[in-house]
Design a protein around this nucleic acid. Structure first.
Lengths: 230, 230
DNA sequence: CCTTGTTGCGCACACTGTACGCACGGAAGA
DNA sequence: TCTTCCGTGCGTACAGTGTGCGCAACAAGG
């Protein structure tokens, strides 16, 4: 093996020696799906402001700027992550007659659960809008519209009805997500937090059940108001 | 006047000459209110990510780090700005009997208008929660609760009712704000945007009127659902 | 073997938030 | 009037950030 390190020629490129050369055993292929998946993992674990291209790159065993071959920039990456999360939703089939209400309620519950699973998504929805244009978001949006159409809402009104429901669900889920993030940053669990804040509030039940009940209350009121239009 | 610039001692501090010395004609006093006001101005004009301490400092004729004497950090500054904006709300007095619905609707309209005036606030509400703890936010929160109490909701339920209304209003205003920010970034007006996207949609009226109608529709549905509980 | 396109990555730039400590101006005390 | 002290503005510095640019290594195809 040639001892190139001592060759006089090497003075021209003094930085890299043959031995310290990266060597690059095999070039692992990066893909957009892989990047988005890792980004969601990191977002779930540490929140939106902890997502940096460098950190994500090293987590994927790659350099920071390599990601830019597959993703235009950080904002686009987050948009992709948002739409990917929308893909988790399982929508019930549209059903008319007495069944529409259960289907819509199920969709709303799914949506709330999605936001609570990925709390970082809430501020993002406020920046990009509920009319998110990714394929998964569109799928969910048209699915909800179909449910309202099957319920019997006239063509002009079903958009308004769906918008009303979406606004309520996103609004309350956003509030819950922010509240939970605040607690998470304090390092306590939700029950400890509530107990420390108001010691004799344990009588009303576990806080997560209370939140769920409050969500259900508002959902029923919104559905009552909508049902009265039929 | 002593000619300190020529003193041999001055070799120790070679950088500043007496003539280039800042001279600092008078020390303008910075105040927290002033800083928050300028921050809101900048946020309204350029959005949340354009707010940097350096930019804000120079806009106030001060150095970037001077702000830290009055404000703990950037996040706290934004929280202060949020609460300051809450202070713009004019709440109607709580009214019972047939009047509660108009009062609540007026509060909701004020809240939506506030978000539309300051679109940057929407993602912030998603991060800090609707249960914002600033004095102005608390004032508005208790005011709304009083309206529901005057309406005749029992003690346990008025919180849920107020939460439902808040969730709907914040949700839809957030969506609108995001949509308007998106348009604003494109440089067009809302009407141009809508016309370019769907040329024959002019028949339905001006887009801002449509948005207002949609907001009113959902608000009426929510209020219907709540009124049915009385 | 050579060419050609694709992709990872090192470097560099402009910019961020903010800790630290100095220096100045006014107020308070001697 | 002189000294001391404290509040506050600011310069400097550091560790980050997103991302444009160009090179280098590979895969495929001729």
């Amino acid at each position: 093996m040639r001892y190139r390190g001592r060759m006089p020629d090497d003075a021209a490129k003094p930085i890299t020696s043959v031995w310290t050369r990266p060597h690059r055993p095999q070039r692992e292929q990066l893909s957009r799906e892989q990047i988005v998946a890792a980004a969601i993992e990191l977002l779930d674990a540490e929140g939106v402001e902890a997502l940096s291209m460098r950190k994500l790159g090293t987590r994927l065993g790659a350099g920071a700027t390599s990601l830019y071959r597959h993703v235009a920039n950080r904002d686009e990456l987050i948009q992709l992550a948002v739409d990917d999360v929308y893909g988790e939703l399982k929508l019930p089939a549209a059903a008319g007659r007495g069944k529409w209400r259960a289907a819509v309620a199920r969709t709303a519950t799914e949506l709330r659960a999605m936001v609570l699973r990925h709390p970082w998504i809430a501020p993002e929805l406020g920046q990009v809008g509920l009319v998110h244009v990714g394929p998964n978001a569109v799928r969910m949006s048209t699915g909800l519209l179909a449910q309202f159409e099957a319920a019997g809402f006239p063509t002009g009104e079903k958009d308004q009805a769906a918008g009303t429901l979406m606004a309520y669900v996103i609004g309350i889920a956003t509030a819950e997500a922010a509240y939970l993030s605040l607690i998470a940053r304090s390092g306590k669990t939700e029950r400890e937090w509530v107990a420390d804040l108001d010691p004799d509030s344990g009588k009303a039940g576990h806080p997560e059940q209370i939140r769920e009940k409050d969500f259900r209350y508002g959902l029923d009121r919104v559905l009552d108001g909508l049902a009265a239009r039929l």
